[in-house]
Design a protein around this nucleic acid. Structure first.
Lengths: 204, 204
DNA sequence: GTCTATAGGTGGATAGAC
DNA sequence: GTCTATCCACCTATAGAC
């Protein structure tokens, strides 16, 4: 019997964050409560406050972990020494995995509820987007230099457009319960960066 | 003294919807309450229930009005007999006006909170997106026929990508409190539909 | 149409026993 | 670390007077 099979233990904090993450991704920060987590873990609400004194602190901790995990994922992509095209595809795959699981990007949800969030949580959300855009901009710039990508203007602008489009595509895909909506949109997004693109006048 | 200057009257229902609309656009469906509206109107919460018995009914009525207003706006664009390019620009301007006011698209917010919405509200949200995509697809198809637009594949797919991207761009622009984020993203979105686009290899 | 008063529920949070 | 018990604020909603 390993500890993971028990309801209690030193990994409670992690399990709380896991549940909170999923709950926010599906229902939003204002759409879940300590009671939801307590029920799922078969403990009382008071127990949760031992690990995270306030909901704001829970949210901040969750965001910090989420950001760390995302930075790790980006570092992994970089370390596998792929080219810009493959990096971009791996990046989109990070999003695709989430939406395929019926969830929304945690920060996409929190961005929607931004006005109601505790300030510390807001800060983490902004850091997440900043990091995403900065990483993407670097990949785009490298790709442009070696001719894999073609685009006008500043890479950071393209990066911002890609992040926004992916978030929007996730949102709509989840609303319709149709992953294809995300897949098709992201494919189109990447296609427009390719050079020598065939401009079919009509293909019906 | 006209009636609009008084706090009460037969236009109460309209004023309630106006306030609810803005509140949802900023704070979300789960982020506002009857108390917020009551305070802004200087009436009691109980009075609001006379006009809208439940919050679900308020939400449904609001969405119905919002959809109707949007369809009206699209019909206006059509009636001004512009070409596809101008129609698309007018369409984007509808979004730009909202974000310039610090608000998010009502349906973009509700899409984020979709899992927690009353079913009647959900239905209206889906109808909104359906209508948007259908209208856009028609404009895109016409534009492709007369050579104003160039894109591969089905028009409905491009329409869906445009809606998703605009919603995502609004979300990020509002999160950063920077309208330019929307403006730049939407400009890029439309640019990629133009034929004979100059593919600058580099312009730094 | 708006009010007072109130019901019944749930929210986040705390004290203190174990 | 988890429990019981409890607090208080806020939520949606209703009854009935005016």
């Amino acid at each position: 019997m390993d500890k993971a099979a028990t309801a209690r233990g030193p990994d409670s904090a992690r399990r709380i964050l896991d549940l909170a993450e999923r709950l926010i991704q599906v229902r939003g920060y204002n759409g879940f409560s300590y009671a939801d987590i307590a029920e799922a873990m078969q403990v009382t609400k008071a127990s949760l406050h031992y690990h995270f004194p306030s909901k704001a602190e829970l949210g901040r901790s969750l965001m910090a972990r989420y950001l760390q995990g995302f930075l790790k994922a980006l570092a992994d992509i970089d370390q596998q020494a792929k080219g810009p095209t493959q990096k971009l595809e791996s990046y989109v795959a990070l999003y695709a995995d989430v939406i395929a699981d019926g969830r929304m990007c945690l920060c996409g949800m929190l961005a929607a509820e931004f006005a109601t969030l505790p300030v510390p949580v807001r800060d983490e959300v902004l850091r997440f987007f900043d990091a995403n855009e900065a990483w993407l901009a670097t990949v785009l710039e490298h790709g442009r230099r070696d001719g894999q990508f073609v685009f006008d203007g500043r890479a950071i602008e393209v990066a911002r457009m890609i992040v926004a489009s992916l978030e929007g595509a996730m949102m709509l895909a989840r609303t319709y319960g149709d992953v294809k909506r995300f897949t098709q949109a992201s494919r189109r997004l990447l296609a427009q960066l390719r050079p020598l693109r065939r401009r079919a006048a009509h293909r019906t």
